[in-house]
């Protein structure tokens, strides 16, 4: 990693186009911002800049984290959500974006239910576009903060064994994590109901392992990432009921006993307590779930600063 490497893109659309150096740059930036989080007052790196949070799908955590991240850097933040946007009046995403650009905003953080929406938007506007989740495609800042959390916990990501458990098929978090962890040299295993963990994932994401035996999937892991069961994306045919999911795949005390001693439990939130994970485990010593949340601010500060810096250049 040459120290002269520069962040190239005004946008962060996904992990896919990033190199290992790019990810390293985000981490170094985040290291710089992390100590500032608990201090009162912020930085002024993005003073005079406006970030628009365009969230066209419900989100609390990601949106709040972007909001705080931008403010900590001194930027002004405007949030537009689905009900307040003109999209409900029939305005297209393209027109909404062009209007935001014409209002002289400097960046758009987009959450959208359509895969490919962030890339589409980035082609329409000259300002920075940060993908905060596009359909089942990517959620790059989540993957970056997850890897960052692992790096802080274990010192490095390379060589770690990470098991992602649950709905892989409809999960953008899973996709971005598979890509990000793979680029950093971790070994990724996916597990869950066969209807939500298709065999061809191994072909779609070379290097990923599919493990049908839950015990084996948990026993090998240094970290297990639980994914939320997403009622809004699954059609009724993918599994019979939440209760059945919990009985087959929910992480409980008995199954947690299969984990290695130092293994950690991660979750991108929001948690369905009692569905994919028992409450005690989510709050227990193995859990790094709240670390993920605070790291999310530092990582998003890093991403905003890098992308908007590239945009200025």
């Amino acid at each position: 990693m040459a120290p002269t490497t520069r962040w190239k893109s005004k946008d962060l659309i996904g992990i896919d186009p990033l190199g290992e150096d790019d990810i390293g740059m985000v981490f170094r930036e985040a290291d710089r911002f992390l100590p500032a989080l608990s201090r009162a007052g912020g930085l002024s790196l993005l003073k005079g800049h406006t970030v628009v949070n365009l969230f066209l799908e419900p989100s609390t955590r990601t949106r709040t984290a972007f909001d705080i991240s931008a403010k900590r850097l001194g930027a002004e933040v405007v949030s537009i959500d689905t009900s307040a946007s003109s999209l409900v009046k029939g305005e297209t995403l393209r027109d909404t974006a062009l209007n935001i650009e014409a209002l002289k905003a400097d960046a758009i953080v987009l959450r959208h239910s359509s895969a490919g929406a962030a890339a589409y938007l980035a082609r329409q506007v000259g300002i920075s576009v940060i993908n905060a989740g596009d359909g089942a495609h990517e959620h790059p800042t989540q993957a970056l903060l997850d890897a960052y959390t692992l790096r802080r916990r274990f010192g490095k990501v390379a060589g770690l064994k990470v098991t992602i458990l649950g709905d892989i098929l409809f999960s953008r978090v899973a996709r971005s994590n598979i890509l990000c962890l793979g680029k950093l040299g971790a070994e990724v295993t996916v597990a869950g109901p066969a209807t939500l963990v298709p065999e061809r994932l191994a072909e779609a994401f070379p290097g990923v392992r599919i493990e049908r035996d839950l015990r084996k999937a948990l026993a090998r892991a240094d970290a297990v990432m639980l994914l939320r069961i997403q009622h809004e994306r699954q059609t009724t045919t993918h599994f019979p009921s939440l209760g059945e999911y919990t009985s087959q795949f929910g992480l409980n005390a008995a199954r947690a006993a299969w984990l290695k001693p130092g293994a950690v439990i991660m979750h991108p939130g929001p948690i369905n307590r009692g569905v994919e994970v028992e409450s005690d485990l989510a709050d227990g010593p193995r859990s790094v779930i709240l670390d993920q949340v605070s790291h999310g601010v530092a990582v998003r500060m890093a991403v905003l600063n890098l992308c908007m810096g590239a945009s200025r250049r």
Partner: peptide, 9 residues
């Protein structure tokens, strides 16, 4: 197929 899995479609 593998491409739709990759693209999330």
């Amino acid at each position: 197929g593998a491409v739709s899995l990759r693209l999330g479609l």
